[in-house]
Nucleic acid binder design. Structure first.
Lengths: 344, 344
DNA sequence: CTGAAAGCGCTTACAG
DNA sequence: CTGAAAGCGCTTACAG
């Protein structure tokens, strides 16, 4: 825990001990041409023996590459910590980084707006080579910001715009099809879609898709906007279940696991049996879904895999690649206890 | 998204435009003596106007300070993503960093062992100024490692050893007292402690403390080791409830939220009423605890505040401070539906 | 294949 | 209070 400079092994040390130039050491270490196989061997062996690791600051300064990507999440602590979404996403990113030996700089800012400063600062300071972005908004200011900062970014989103930024696109209509087909096959005709805030683009896309795909199937889909929070799901469900028997939905598709759990609670409080009188389906699977009683039917979107794809796309762009769009795989429906046919 | 070097504003630009030396700009920017108040003003104003942010690589290289701390978590993805623990901890760290303008480099390695390489590499590469460590083991190899790497670290732990490393110590005996007093006041005499893996030091400390404090109160505390996973909690609870009426525990203290939820499930499956015939208490509060039916009584350990304290202690050490130990505040018991007196 | 040298953008004694 | 200069540890053309 000494203060002051930590002694470190440098390429100069290696060069001196081997009686060659620093340049040769650098070439050898980086697998570049310019050194004989024999010299390369000797350099690698000595580096290993000395436990050499190149100073990231020196590399960043001379090569303008940090090997680090940034993720900035601007959401309320309550939501972030409650949902499994972000943690699983982070894990997917990390799995990629573990293999690619990349680094993740993470910032959780409680409020939107504050995040913009972080993107700007990190880019200007040269701390990261690129960003993965979540929670796209309308006219998201981060898109022009990254452009002006001249730093690559990949938006994990439901919208396939062509605005120069990288995009990993979730095929929401496929997801909706899987869910609606399941409910329809169980005989449901009136479905409530309890979405998250429509300020998020992906929620808007989901609402539109639910409407469209519902019509195609002759299903009445009623949209109710929620906040992702428990209280919001509870209140909306109570309201929906209070409707007259002819308009009351027989199935609820909840925008996240928390609201789905809340729907279960509200139904139980009202003595409405699940799934006999009401089916509930969660848009995102999580522990909540399989620890709840009854266990929630939910979509598994393969979040870790998605995060890995997003990271791969970002590195592709950082390395000068030109493909900006990729589509993430469709999720699978995990049918558990909360969806079923109506009891007569 | 251009390739090649991003144009950047440097202190040379500022110096040139103001007709002064780079040194003066540096002094002005860093609030050091050596420049007149007037010069300082002009530098600051221009830096602001140009959107100047010092290259972190250059600063790190010359000042040997990165402003970044590292956290490496070696745990199974399933556990990490299911528990709210890490996400809330990360949020606490981030709150501190948002104010202190520090950065967090995060690595989630699935397996133990692999994490040691990350500590070593990041330290040698000079990527971080220090580490916050979680999940202390017996003879934890990270302690000597950080010593040899000469980099500060703060272990968030239950053990107040004096081994030169920083320690934020959780007063487990206080926690245990709160929980046992609550159960005793409800009339419980036989308590089962369903712990996590005792390979973790904090679990060992908890087991010992539960035994000791139980004896002091004339309570029979039976220890059962679990894995933190749902199946483990379910199985242990089923076993405990199968004991003869005279030895069967009337209350279970579960080591995490998942196992507590599982205990609820097992009790329900066996037709054992909660809390009439069995009380259940979770060691850590989370969403699971208040979305479960019945809602779980749990300890709120103020995880975000703890994480903030740990981060503060780490920066204290990085800045050359000498205080290595601090004690984190005792949690509060959130009494909900799963603890109560036995029904006659 | 190898070496000497410039340069990345800062900080920090050291002279004036 | 201010400036010229060395140095942090790499990478990368450029000569040999």
């Amino acid at each position: 825990m000494s203060s002051g400079r930590r002694e470190r092994v440098t390429i100069s040390d290696i060069a001196a001990r081997l009686g060659i130039s620093k340049a040769s050491v650098s070439y050898a270490l980086n697998g570049r041409p310019g050194v004989s196989a024999e010299t390369r061997e000797r350099v690698l062996a000595l580096a290993d023996e000395l436990g050499f690791h190149a100073s990231s600051a020196a590399v960043a300064l001379s090569a303008a590459r940090t090997g680090t990507i940034g993720i900035v999440i601007a959401r309320d602590p309550e939501v972030i910590t409650a949902e499994g979404f972000y943690m699983r996403t982070l894990f997917g990113v990390e799995q990629y980084l573990n293999d690619a030996d990349g680094q993740l700089l993470l910032r959780l800012t409680g409020e939107r707006g504050e995040d913009l400063h972080v993107y700007r600062r990190w880019a200007r300071q040269g701390r990261v080579d690129g960003f993965i972005l979540y929670d796209e908004h309308d006219d998201d200011p981060r898109v022009p910001l990254l452009h002006s900062l001249q730093v690559p970014g990949v938006m994990v989103t439901s919208v396939a715009k062509e605005d120069g930024i990288g995009r990993l696109v979730t095929p929401e209509s496929e997801t909706v099809r899987v869910m609606l087909d399941h409910l329809k096959s169980l005989g449901h005709k009136r479905i409530a879609h309890l979405s998250g805030p429509t300020a998020y683009l992906h929620e808007r896309v989901r609402v539109e898709t639910m409407q469209r795909e519902g019509e195609d199937r002759g299903l009445a889909v009623r949209h109710v906007e929620g906040t992702y929070e428990f209280a919001s799901g509870e209140e909306a469900t109570t309201r929906l279940l209070g409707l007259s028997a002819r308009t009351r939905p027989t199935a609820i598709v909840a925008g996240n696991d928390i609201m789905a759990t809340a729907a279960l609670k509200a139904a139980a409080d009202l003595g409405v049996g699940v799934p006999d009188q009401l089916s509930v389906l969660a848009w995102d699977d999580s522990v909540l879904c399989h620890t709840s009683r009854p266990r929630l039917t939910a979509m598994d979107h393969g979040l870790m895999e998605k995060a890995r794809l997003a990271t791969d796309l970002l590195y592709h762009l950082i390395d000068g690649g030109t493909q900006t769009h990729r589509v993430s795989p469709v999720g699978t429906l995990l049918v558990r206890d909360t969806t079923g046919p109506l009891a007569r």
